[in-house]
Simulated assay, not measured.
Amino acid sequence: MGAPYLMGRRGWTKIKRRDTSEAIVGAITGTLTRPQLLVLGRHDTDGRLRTVGRTTTLRPEQARQVAEHLAPANPGHPWEGVQFAASWGSRDVLDVTLVRPGAVAEISADRAVDRGGVWRHPVRFKRLRVGMSPGDVPGCGEADPSRARRP
């Protein structure tokens, strides 16, 4: 632990920590029958659904599982008119379809979290949590959304 960093030399080991948590599916890319990736949200302290990240591309079996639980968004979706960046720091915009925010996804995320509880890197979709409701999902805005739980 006391060894200095030496540029261009291998001596340190980088350990990436991932945590499993939940988020609400609020939008997708692709179609309702074949989603490609999920745009995820969590409720803030005022009850508004805030974007906290997106998944990597879904595998075909994951896309089929998710598609069974998607429904088109009703008018007044909290993300109407919002544009989503294709990647962190990018000016490219994702072409998304808003969905009814009722499906809860279990995800695996690394520890890189921005202020406001937004994951800096795409998260990995693990499965749908069909026994959970959006109210069971941790709130956003905590310093570490992967470990925070709402009372």
Rank of each mutant, 00 (worst) to 15 (best):
A3E: 11
A3S: 11
Y5T: 11
G8R: 13
G11D: 08
G11W: 01
G11M: 04
G11V: 02
T13Q: 10
T13M: 09
K14C: 04
K16G: 00
R17L: 15
R17H: 13
D19N: 10
S21G: 11
S21W: 14
I24T: 05
T29E: 14
L37Y: 06
G41D: 12
T45M: 14
D46H: 15
R54S: 13
T57E: 14
R59S: 13
R64F: 05
V66Y: 01
A67M: 02
H69M: 04
A73D: 06
N74G: 07
N74C: 04
G76T: 06
G76V: 05
G76E: 04
P78H: 05
E80R: 09
V82Q: 14
Q83G: 07
F84E: 11
G89E: 08
D92A: 15
D95K: 12
V96Y: 02
V96S: 06
T97G: 02
R100M: 09
S108F: 00
S108N: 04
A109V: 13
D114A: 15
G117D: 11
W119S: 01
W119Q: 04
R124T: 12
R124K: 10
L128R: 11
G135L: 12
V137D: 02
P138R: 06
G139R: 05
G139Y: 00
A143G: 07
D144G: 00
S146W: 00
R147N: 06
A148L: 01
R149F: 07
R150G: 05
R150N: 07
P151N: 02
